[in-house]
Design a binder for these strands. Structure first.
Lengths: 233, 233
DNA sequence: TGGTTTGCTTGACCTAGGTCAATGCAGACG
DNA sequence: CGTCTGCATTGACCTAGGTCAAGCAAACCA
C-alpha cells in the first residue's frame, strides 16, 4: 500500500476529496512506482489497464501517425491524474519526460472505488473539465499561432505549472527553471520542427527576453514582453 | 418546464442517467430555447451562467485572439452537453452554426442538482472524458497533419457524427450529408484559410472521391480512399 | 427580370517554416 | 586527455499553404 499520510501531493491530487478512512482504503489499492525518463507507462491504443496520480516528475501524453509524425497532446505534472478511467482503450501513450514517481492503480479497482465515492468522481470531473479547457487553448495555439507566439506561450505555461506544482503560492512567478523536455519534444508539443524551436529560442535570447544558461535551463528576463508575444498582442 | 418524456434526445443525453421522478425534477429547472444560426449563446471570457443540452442543430465552441484570428475548438451535435459546470468563466464562446434547439439551465441550478445526483455526474464525467479524447485527436490534426489530411478527416468526422446523432445504428455510414458550416468555418476548425479549404475540396472532387452537388452538400463516393487520406496512411 | 449581395472558386505570387546538411559543443568513456 | 556520441545550433535552400485579387454563380430583392 501507499503511504498516503505523508504523500507530498495529498492536498492537491484528487485524493484530497476523501476522508481519512476512505483515503486509507484507496491507499490499499494503489502502489508507488518509479518511472525512469523515457520509460512508457501506457502505449497508444492499448486497453486502458491502469490509472495513476503523479507524485513527482513530468510525463507526456502523445499520439503518432503511422508514418511516425508525433504530437504531444498533454503534459502532466505532480498531483495531476493520468489515464482513462471507465473502460475504453487509451487513445494516447504515456511516457516519462523526466524520472518520475507515480501512485498507480489498476483501472478496474479504481473504477470500482470511484463508483462508491461521488466526491472523488466530482474532483475527477473538475480536473477533467480543466484539462479539456487547457487542451482547447492548445488547439488555438496549434491552429492559429505563429512559431514565436508558440514558443513564448510554452515558456510561460511551463513556468506557471512548475510554479504551481512547487506549491509556491508565495512565489507565483518562477523566472528560472529547468525544461522538463528536450528540443524535439518542445517541437512535438508545439507542432514545429526542432530547427524552428531552436531558431525561435535564439531570437528570444538575442532580444534579451530570456537567457539560456544551458540546454535545459531557461531564465525569463522580461516576463511582460514574453507574455505580450505569447498572447499575440 | 421542458417536456422530457417526449424529448427526442432523452435516451442519449446525460438525462438518460436519471430515474423518471428525477427527470421530472430536472425538467422543472430547464427550459427549451430556440437559437438561430449565427446567434451566440455564451461569449468567450464571460462568467459561465448557463449550461444546456443540444436537442437539435449544431453549435460551435470557439476562441479568438485579440487580432481576430479564430479557432473553433469544438462542435456539438444533438444530445451533446454545452457549458462549463462548477464555477469559472467560459474559456470559449458558443455560437449556433445552424438553427438549433437547446434545453437550457442556469449554471447554479444545474450544479446544485448535479451535486445531489452522482449518476448524472458520472455520465457527465464520461462525456467530458470522451470530449477530451476528441480534442486531443484534433490536436494531432492541427499540429501534424497536411491540408488534404485535415479535410479528409473533417469529412469523415462529420459524416460519423451526423450518422450517430441521427441515431441510425442501422445505417452507420452516412455517405450523403449537409455540411453544418460554411467554408470559412471549416477553415477555422482545421486551422486553414478558406482558399485552402476550397482548393482541397476541389482536389477531392477531381479525384472522384467526393461529389459537391451544392455549397452545403457532400457525397462520399469512395469512403475507403477518403479514410486512407484522413489517417495519413 | 435584371441588379446586388454573399459565398465560393481560381489564379499569381509570396513567405513562414520545413528540409537537408554542416558545424559546434558538452558530458561520457576509455 | 583525446575522441565519441548525442543534442543543439546555424546556414542555404525549398515548398505547402497563405495572401491578394479577380471572376463566378446562386440566392435575394426591387
Amino acid at each position: 500500500m501507499s503511504d498516503c499520510e505523508t504523500c507530498v501531493v495529498r492536498n492537491r491530487a484528487i485524493c484530497s476529496a476523501l476522508m481519512p478512512d476512505e483515503l486509507t482504503a484507496l491507499g490499499k489499492l494503489g502502489r508507488k512506482q518509479h518511472v525512469s525518463r523515457g520509460q512508457t507507462l501506457v502505449w497508444e491504443g492499448d486497453e486502458s489497464l491502469v490509472v495513476a496520480n503523479v507524485i513527482q516528475g513530468v510525463l507526456k501524453l502523445s499520439v503518432s501517425t503511422q508514418d511516425g509524425r508525433e504530437q504531444i497532446v498533454g503534459v502532466v505534472f505532480p498531483s495531476d491524474f493520468i489515464g482513462r478511467p471507465f473502460g475504453k482503450e487509451s487513445p494516447y501513450g504515456v511516457t516519462a519526460l523526466t524520472d518520475a514517481e507515480v501512485c498507480i492503480f489498476t483501472r478496474t479497482a479504481f473504477d470500482g472505488f470511484a463508483k462508491e465515492h461521488p466526491d472523488l468522481q466530482h474532483k475527477l470531473l473538475q480536473r477533467t473539465l480543466d484539462e479539456l479547457d487547457r487542451a482547447r487553448q492548445w488547439m488555438m495555439l496549434l491552429g492559429r499561432k505563429t512559431a514565436s507566439e508558440r514558443i513564448a506561450t510554452l515558456l510561460i505555461e511551463i513556468s506557471d505549472r512548475l510554479g504551481a506544482a512547487g506549491c509556491s503560492a508565495i512565489a507565483p512567478f518562477l523566472d528560472k527553471f529547468e525544461l522538463p523536455m528536450d528540443r524535439q519534444q518542445m517541437g512535438d508539443l508545439l507542432g514545429l520542427t526542432i530547427e524552428t524551436v531552436s531558431r525561435q529560442l535564439t531570437k528570444l535570447k538575442e532580444a534579451e527576453i530570456i537567457e539560456l544558461p544551458d540546454r535545459r535551463s531557461v531564465v525569463i528576463k522580461d516576463r511582460r514582453r514574453l507574455e505580450n508575444i505569447a498572447t499575440a498582442a
